[in-house]
Design a protein around this nucleic acid. Sequence first.
DNA 1: TCATCATATTCCGAATCAGGAATATGTCAA
DNA 2: TTGACATATTCCTGATTCGGAATATGATGA
Lengths: 111, 111
Amino acid sequence: MSRSAATSDIFTAVADVHRRRILDSLIAGEKAVGTIVDDLSLPQPQVSKHLRVLDDVGLVRCRAEGRRRLYRVEPLRLRPLREWLAQYEQTVNERLDRIDDYLQDLQRQGE
Amino acid sequence: MSRSAATSDIFTAVADVHRRRILDSLIAGEKAVGTIVDDLSLPQPQVSKHLRVLDDVGLVRCRAEGRRRLYRVEPLRLRPLREWLAQYEQTVNERLDRIDDYLQDLQRQGE
DNA sequence: TCATCATATTCCGAATCAGGAATATGTCAA
DNA sequence: TTGACATATTCCTGATTCGGAATATGATGA
């Protein structure tokens, strides 16, 4: 069980496509559970359960307003993911540089 | 089963910490399976299985050299992850701007 | 060809997870 | 207080996953 529990690991939390869609739908702004349910056409219990997972890892925050609960995304919490990914930026750039060099070589040969 | 099969979805593929460590260890460059096994102190069959998953989603590529197999990371394949994450950059920046504004307000009040 | 090295695959059991249905909790309004 | 609304939780099941052990495949060199 090396895929850590979704409830403690951002990477696992965003591995689920429904959870990603929920986060995506919250980019537009704070939303009530019912709104998310309507937007994504998912059963309400599922949405609540996914929101719970996202809340446990801190990717969303919740506040109560009357009998509704408004959730918002907490994008700063994506930082570990961003940082992990950043390790590969350089590697990508090096490859693109090599492609650039290659294309320039081709061009020189054509002249 | 909305967490798509690891073999078809890079989000799920990188959800496993061992697979991330394997990818990380390949940043340094092409490596044979045995080298990864030594570096990460994981059983060889597990490494092979994880490499298979990573290969299925295109995150690594393999070439044979004698009886060894050399794997390298394919960072360009992380693009969907990068793009998904990019959606949240703006949201992060907006929040930071708001924090900035707030701090400036504080400063003005202190003057 | 045979033994050996390097890697991949298969089979198994335990754990985890997502989804569905039913139900519980909590809040408002009359 | 009661009933309706909004959301959360529980229970269950099937599917998937990981890890371990054993074994299979494939290439090399004697």
